[in-house]
């Protein structure tokens, strides 16, 4: 390894021997990983007091094995349920879940809305590349209408989820959406999520140049980032736009930021009361 030029965030927070990202060239997952390490660094958090859980998919490899902390790489779609057990069992640990759109909008969809409803103190970062990356580019519940994928060769007949609306309706304390272009906003949201005492959800629209890119004809990751910048509309502005005007746009921003007692804290209060 070229020791002279190792990124300071890797030196501080990466597992030795795991510096090399497992993702394809230009994949957005690495950008999300870097944003999380930066957020942790800016908050000066102790990595030994954070547990990173993830499911199955390319996005679920963000903390695993890169992050030099306790990492629980679980089964497909279930990371939030595993993480719920961790958080309730040791509320002093911060729990962060990395998941994908297939992982938590399809197979694990119920765990996502239930975790939001329970308001369990977990920060969930859902990397939405609008495709099943790891399995080779099959349609996801987030794939836009009409898009051709490996399993929608004649175009997607279904419509994608608005995951932020879903999670907001389910009761989350913090909800935001950014793209991998909006790294500074993403870091700032991650910092809020890391400190939030309730369920936090950040959706990151991310580029998958290899699978999604191939289907939509944009294989250059940089071009995808430029497009993200162009088609993103801030939440405040989007409020005054019609459904038609918002077609094909990405609404970005913070949608929810409220204070409500989280489940782990509520449970601790109950235990204190019962064991006086």
């Amino acid at each position: 390894m070229d020791q002279k030029h190792v990124h300071p965030l890797l030196v501080k927070y990466a597992r030795i021997g795991a510096y090399k990202q497992p993702h394809c060239p230009g994949c957005g997952n690495g950008i999300v990983a870097q944003c999380m390490l930066r957020a942790i660094d800016e908050l000066k958090l102790d990595m030994d007091k954070i547990v990173f859980a993830s499911g199955i998919g390319c996005s679920s490899w963000i903390p695993s094995p890169l992050f030099n902390a306790d990492v629980l790489h679980t089964t497909h779609g279930r990371s939030l349920a595993f993480a719920t057990g961790v958080k309730l069992s040791n509320p002093e640990l911060r729990v962060v879940v990395f998941t994908g759109d297939g992982d938590s909008a399809a197979i694990g969809g119920n765990h996502l809305i239930q975790a939001a409803r329970k308001n369990i103190e977990i920060l969930t970062v859902l990397v939405n590349n609008r495709i099943y990356g790891m399995t080779g580019g099959q349609v996801a519940p987030t794939t836009p209408h009409g898009v051709k994928t490996k399993t929608t060769p004649y175009g997607n007949l279904e419509y994608p989820f608005d995951l932020c609306k879903l999670v907001e309706a389910a009761g989350a304390s913090y909800v935001a959406r950014w793209t991998t272009f909006h790294t500074r906003q993403l870091v700032s949201s991650m910092k809020k999520g890391l400190l939030k005492k309730g369920f936090s959800f950040i959706e990151v629209i991310s580029q998958c140049p290899v699978q999604y890119g191939t289907f939509v004809g944009i294989r250059d990751p940089a071009e995808m980032l430029h497009i993200f910048r162009k088609i993103s509309v801030p939440f405040e502005k989007a409020k005054n736009m019609s459904r038609e005007e918002l077609e094909g746009k990405i609404v970005i921003g913070e949608f929810v930021d409220i204070e409500r007692t989280g489940l782990a804290e509520a449970y601790q209060r109950l235990l204190e009361m019962m064991n006086l």
Binding site: L72, T74, T84, G85, V86
Partner: peptide
Amino acid sequence: ASVIGASW
């Protein structure tokens, strides 16, 4: 799943 998380 939560039982496994709790165990860890």
